[in-house]
Simulated scan of single mutants.
Amino acid sequence: MLVASIHRDHSNISRLLRLLTQNLGAIRDEKPVNFGQIRDTVMYLQEYAEKYHHPKEDLIYHYYVSHYDDHEGVAKLDAEHEELAVLTAEFADTVEMILMDAVIPLDLFADRLNKFVEQQRSHLELEESSVLPAIEKTLTTDDWNSLQSQWEEEEQDPLFGEQVAVRFKELAAAL
């Protein structure tokens, strides 16, 4: 079911955010940081979350808004997904610069990492605490069947799926 896969994705993304938070702590404690791991996490969010997870949510959100009163501000999540995509791309550029030996003060990088994690976490919390419960309470079995028929075959998750993609093996091991 669509909503179950969204909750599963949120749980997986939360695990990644905890890993990023550990790296943030390492930066602040002046301990070694695995920037490749940070890059891989951001790459996963760009490749999977933005291309498969958010469109799945958007399908549900658009359906909800077009069929029911939008008491939970669901319509604004479209814009939030776009903002997260921009933030992720900007942060990915910063990580790549560091990996290419660009000089970026660690305190500046830590601030950007913290902002990235906090915005991602805030978005997940909004969806999990108010938006999805309201949608789950409101949508009928017929609504869910209609949505499921509009969603194409589930994309294989390259990190948390049955088979981990080669580019995410090190990240999977860290989790």
Rank of each mutant, 00 (worst) to 15 (best):
E96Y: 12
E125F: 12
L159P: 01
L77Y: 09
S149A: 14
L77Q: 15
D29E: 09
H54E: 05
I6P: 01
A174K: 01
L171H: 03
V95C: 10
W151Q: 11
A92Q: 05
Q148S: 08
L126P: 06
I27H: 05
A49K: 14
G36S: 13
L124D: 12
N23K: 00
Q46R: 15
K115P: 02
N114R: 13
E82R: 13
A110F: 11
Q46V: 07
D9S: 08
L87K: 15
K76F: 10
H54P: 02
K56N: 07
E47G: 13
V103A: 13
N23L: 00
E50C: 03
Y48H: 06
P32Y: 08
A110Y: 07
E96G: 12
E30K: 10
V74L: 07
A173V: 14
S122M: 14
S66W: 10
E128C: 00
A172G: 06
F91T: 01
S129G: 11
Q148V: 08
V65H: 01
K31L: 08
K56Y: 01
Q22K: 09
L147N: 02
M100D: 13
A26M: 09
L19W: 07
E96C: 10
P55W: 04
N34Q: 04
S146Q: 03
S149E: 11
L147K: 03
L19F: 06
S14R: 08
L16S: 05
Y68N: 14
L171S: 02
H62T: 15
E96P: 02
T41G: 04
L20T: 04
Y68V: 15
A102W: 13
L19I: 13
E50N: 07
H67I: 00
T41Q: 04
E170I: 09
P32A: 15
N12A: 05
R18M: 11
L175P: 00
V3Y: 13
N114F: 10
T88D: 05
D157C: 00
V103Y: 12
L19C: 09
L99R: 05
Q120M: 13
L87A: 14
L139H: 04
L106S: 15
H7S: 13
R15L: 13
E162N: 13
R167P: 05
V103S: 11
Y44D: 01
S66K: 12
L139T: 07
I13Y: 05
H54I: 02
I135Y: 06
I27T: 03
E136K: 12
L84S: 04
N114T: 14
L147M: 06
V33C: 04
Q163L: 08
Q148W: 01
D142H: 01
R112G: 11
D101H: 15
E82M: 09
P133T: 06
G73K: 05
N12C: 04
N145D: 15
D40E: 15
Y64Q: 11
L126T: 14
Y61W: 12
K76I: 08
G73W: 03
L87C: 03
V95R: 05
P55K: 01
E47Q: 14
V86N: 10
Q156F: 07
Q37P: 06
M1S: 11
A110H: 04
G73E: 05
P32E: 15
E128I: 00
S129I: 04
L17S: 12
